[in-house]
Each structure stands twice: as structure tokens, then as C-alpha cells.
Design a protein around this nucleic acid. Sequence first.
DNA 1: CGGCGTCAAGTTTTC
DNA 2: GAAAACTTGACGCCG
Length: 364
Amino acid sequence: MSRELNTSEPNMGEPPRLGFCCTFIPDPDPSHKTLKAAKDAAKLMNLGTVTMAHLERLGPAARFEKLEGVVRHNLAALERQIAWVSGRPPLERLLRMASSVLPGYTHPVAQPLYAQAPMRSLIETGLSRVGERARAGEVRLSMHPGPFCIIASRNPNAQANGIAELEYHAEVMAMLGYGAGWHPHGAHVNIHIGGREPGIEGFRESLSLISESARNLLTVENDESLFGLDAVLRLGDRVPVVLDLHHHWVESRGEYIEPDDPRIRAVIASWRGVRPVSHISVSRETLLPEHDPDALPDFPALSDQGHSWRDLAAHSDLMWNRAVNALVARHLAWSDFEIEAKGKNQASVPLAARIGRDLSRAAA
DNA sequence: CGGCGTCAAGTTTTC
DNA sequence: GAAAACTTGACGCCG
């Protein structure tokens, strides 16, 4: 099947990648004598934020300074994350960036601050530098706005806010250097459909309300309840589909989809020549302490044992299930992966090490 | 300094 | 009817 996937389209020839999402967790380090030292180390590597309520309580000058300080920190932290990822083996050169780079970008309290020239130039210079660094280090980048980012809603205000939020993510991508063309360098901004109404058809109609650069970066992900893989594939002619294998397992009440499934071909086609990205996670290890790590979790059986739908949907700390990891390794033939584990890099690095070892053994 | 409540935002499901 | 689930900390206040 790898022959069939080896298309002549530009990005399909890219090597496989997998990575963690948003937050870097430093290794336990003996030089961190105290909990505080470990926290400080994490702080350096991760993005921060500021609440709009706090900003609003400050006077004009302090308000600007506070936000500028957070933005400065975030640009530097993002650059450190990307530098770290680019220093990893090629298999690990993928990162989902946190949405909080520019906190409150679409909020009325912060908006006027972002409009000021010194802030603009700080951001443009910083993001352009970060983007260059990502491309030089061959790090594939994505963003995943929160659940508030819906582009089709029955509530016109919610829809307007959601579209503004999507445009914010697209602007960040543009300032990073991913502002033109179809998912340039595999970059993307991934969202869900959102509410039951207006659903898939409302989403399709809303595509005409967003900018071309946002449309060029947009992807849509199957969710665990309302809009499963078949539903989002109905948008595949316009929007690339991000396949979340764990959501699919929950939504289908236990199906593990394999690379030779016809629906995988439809997912690949939706990306139109760009190498797809998929998501993986697994139910919490604390929920299944006795579970055989070499057996795929069985949804109907676990459900019968009294585990609720919601508990099974929650994410584990680490990629503890070797059968699920083997499934990821098979899907890496056609897709990159974002590892949605609470342990972040502490989960993705060992997973990549095991998969990388298996890949090189298979090649030998 | 630790604990707790609050903080921009939407929608659904479950207790 | 409140809380939890998706991205998660930051901040002020109280003891």
C-alpha cells in the first residue's frame, strides 16, 4: 500500500513525523533541587497568558506593559520550543503550537493594544524569526483553536467570535510565513464542526465567510459524538480531514480503523497532495490499571464493565498501550501524528524512539 | 506560601 | 441545573 501512497504530489514525499501538543514538560533533572526550580524550567519553555479581567483593571500604560511582557515571553518560549523540537530526530519534528501566543487578540480589551505600532512590530519581527527557525529546522507546525472557535452556529454572535478566532490563528500562521498557498509546509489550523445545528452544511456555507488564507490553512477533525469520520468526510472536497483515531474509537463504540480502509483513501484525498496529520490518544491508565498493554482496549467490553463514555474518552498521561502504538506505526505510512497525551513530550519521545527503532529495523 | 475562586468565548452530555 | 469535556494557567485574596 505504500506504493499507492507514494504520489508525485509535493508533500506526500515528506518523511513521517509525530509530536506533542502545546506544552513542554522538562525531564526530571537532579539540578532542579526544588519543585520551584522545576516549575521555573517549565515556565521558560512554555507560553503564558494574562486574563482580560486583569488587563482591564490596569491603567493604560501598565496595561500595555503587561501585555507586551507576556507577548515577549511567548515569542521567546515558542522559539525555544521550536529549537528543542528541531534538535530532535526527524521523526519528532512536528509541534502543535499553543493558541495563547497573543492572548486576547480578538478581545475588545486587548485589541487596541495589539493595534499599536510598537506591539505590531514586536510581533511581526518575532513571529517571522520563529517561522524561519521552524523551516530551517524542518519542524511541521499546526494550531488547534479551542472549542469556542466554531465557524457555524445558530447564534450569530458566537459565529462572529468564532470566525474572528479562526482569523487570528490564520494571522499568526501568516506572520510565521505560512500565509500563502494550500497548507504550506503542511501547516494547518484545525477545528471541529461544533454544534448539531447548522452542522456540516452550515460549516460548508461558512467557508465563504472566512479569508482565503484561513481557508487555505483550515482542517476539520472528527469528534467523539456528533460529527464522526463519515460526517466530516462530507467536507473532504473543500477541507482536509484530520482523523482522530481515539475519537473515532469512541464515536464508533470500538472500531480501530486500519490504513487499508477506504475511508483512509478519502482522508488522504481531502488533503490534496499535502501529507495528512492525524491525532492519537488512549484512555487513561488510571481508568484501566489492570489492562493488558499488548491488547487493544475493547470499547463494548469496557462499557459493559461500567466505564462511562466520557471516562473512556479522557486522555492518558503516557502512550501505555503497545497495541495502539503499533496501530500508529502502521498509519505513519500515510500520516503524521499529534500525540494527545497529558504527558506531552514525556509521552511522544518514548513513542517515537520505539517506532523509530522498528522503522530502521524494518529498513535493514 | 498554599488553597480557593475567578477569569473571553460554545455546545453537548452526564451526574 | 451544575460540572465536565475539548486548548490551560494566571491572578488576587484569604488564612
